[in-house]
Nucleic acid binder design. Structure first.
Lengths: 340, 340
DNA sequence: ACCTTACCAGAAAGCGCTTTCTGAAAGCGC
DNA sequence: GCGCTTTCAGAAAGCGCTTTCTGGTAAGGT
């Protein structure tokens, strides 16, 4: 099942067989058909490793690194990447880091070893000096050797092409919309502060409120998961002092947990308390009440990031940034505050 | 950044450098540390392709083929696969076929070319003679060449190791539970009949009802998606004749769409009509009412299928089947029929 | 002191391809 | 008909590794 076998079967040299199969150079018609027939007969499949090794020509795989495939946010983006990749006959190597920085770096290294054509990093980077340096040390040689890198929502310190959701502006706009509904007392359910996405959304929300002269209110931190949101909401309700009339969870996934916690505590949404999230993952539309959020076009973001990576490298070494606007979508989970 | 460069830097032969780095054979301590140091200094990363080519030793990637990553069912299984793969330092190549049989075969072929250590097929096969033959033609040479294949919920015609959810038994048990609630008038929202999963669940549900002397009722077909479920439910409601008191959607994803359709039509769940799904994808717990369903341990199924593939090939050439029981979970979406 | 083992570094042969490079045959103008 | 370019098949040189095989040196046995 090697090229040599095919060549022998067809009675030509391996060189000719290679050319006939790949169409690199003109080959006499009769020889070409003979080679093709022999390949079919033998069920020949070229060894991609040998091909990658012999031809400087990059191979047909791109690496995709995300925090967790089972998180709908990443799944949505990954889906867009795959669709675009399929169109170009590229294989996607998808890795979940389970939010461990070291594993992320290990994956980049494996992808480098595979000579992946491009490496896509999805999801916030870690705001950690040592980690950033290590990541840079992996990525720089890769890029210098002709590798492509593109990311979505990363730290700017990584000087690579970026698809950047407008977290800050989106959160600010959401805040204004919530204020417009009449809310004055807020609380925020936030994730790990070392994730840039969290920092940006928090800052944006604060800004939006500040424009109306309102403070951020209580900020409760939780894990970046449904359970994190659930726990954070419980802690919020348990805290003493007046309750906010509106809660913002920095991601929809957390908001889903929060909604459950509110319901369990007998707090009606939106009658007693309004709740909003961020991302617009598919499921939040199905909740009752459906969740207000800032919608991000996840699939499109996936398509954009792979397109960015595959595009001819910019002559100027400057990294490109594609900004993605979030759209505030007010649904049933937000309403005017009680007694207004 | 080649091994040769490292060897030269360390003042040893490439052979020694290789051995020092991989620990294949004993190498004098001072040489080994010198080689390691040189590798670090140069930022050496072995070329995985060259390694794969030189050593018959299989490489460190496994292929995972599913219909759609953004479907929570597949995402859940994929997540389990990734966790297990990460523990063994394996890279997962994940491909979405978007339910196109031809694309599935193309991916298997690419994975073969990559000499993936194992190929995992997730999700129903297509009941189509030509397709089955083509798939067999890809898989057989792969297995004969030492490749491993494992699948979850496939057609039995594929003679490979299988993780098999007990679709039939689970659906039957669900039917009995629903009958026990008092229901006598049913309807089923079903997916493409060429998917074996659909066929099995449908058959199981029919069996369960038959045990109580009840017929299946109206069967409405839709796509295997939320929209498919939505549309099927609308068509069901639009049909003339008496309405069923209980609807079974063959997957949770379809049930989610159905729930939305029922709500839109002003049908209260479960007061006017009960609704149940299958799979227990994470989101259905969050709905109101939370969906009754047959729970499948998705992550575990992912772990099992990769373990199956990686296990030493059975001496007997028989393919192994791991059966996964579904557990009927009755939640708020099902209740006694109206007026009982 | 001599010969056998044991150990370990280096030389060299591939792994399965692609891609120059080489050269034979054919096509062209004069 | 002769020298020219053009076309295209085959020989051969790698791509970057691993792994036998070979051989030199040190240790051990008699």
């Amino acid at each position: 099942m090697t090229l040599d076998a095919v060549a022998r079967e067809a009675g030509v040299s391996p060189a000719t067989a290679s050319r006939a199969l790949n169409g690199t150079t003109r080959v006499r018609d009769d020889l070409r058909t003979r080679v093709r027939a022999a390949a079919d007969l033998l069920g020949y499949i070229p060894n991609a490793h040998a091909q990658a090794l012999a031809s400087a020509e990059g191979n047909r795989t791109v690496g995709l690194i995300c925090h967790d495939v089972s998180d709908p946010y990443f799944a949505g983006i990954a889906s867009g990447v795959m669709r675009a990749a399929a169109e170009q006959d590229l294989l996607v190597m998808l890795a979940s880091t389970f939010r461990e920085p070291s594993r992320e770096i290990a994956y980049v290294s494996m992808l480098r070893a595979q000579r992946a054509r491009a490496i896509l990093l999805i999801g916030s980077g870690f705001q950690d000096r040592a980690w950033e340096r290590a990541m840079d040390a992996e990525l720089n040689p890769y890029v210098r050797a002709g590798g492509r890198v593109a990311v979505v929502s990363r730290h700017r310190s990584l000087r690579v092409d970026t698809v950047q959701p407008e977290n800050r502006a989106g959160a600010a706009e959401l805040a204004r919309a919530l204020v417009a509904l009449g809310h004055r007392e807020f609380a925020v359910l936030t994730g790990p502060p070392e994730l840039t996405t969290v920092a940006d959304r928090l800052a944006g929300f604060r800004e939006g409120l500040a424009g109306a002269g309102i403070g951020l209110g209580r900020v409760v931190r939780g894990a970046f998961t449904r359970e994190g949101g659930h726990l954070a909401a419980r802690r919020l309700l348990a805290a003493e002092g007046p309750r906010p009339t509106c809660v913002f969870a920095v991601t929809d996934v957390m908001a889903v947990g929060a909604l459950a916690a509110l319901r369990e505590a007998g707090v009606r949404v939106p009658e007693d308390m309004s709740l909003a999230g961020f991302d617009d993952i598919p499921l939040v539309r199905e909740l009752s009440p459906p969740l207000s959020t800032v919608a991000l076009p996840l699939t499109e973001m996936g398509e954009r990031v792979i397109a960015l990576a595959l595009r001819a490298p910019s002559a100027a070494a400057r990294s490109r940034v594609v900004r993605i606007d979030g759209e505030v979508v007010l649904r049933g989970s937000t309403a005017a505050p009680p007694g207004s």
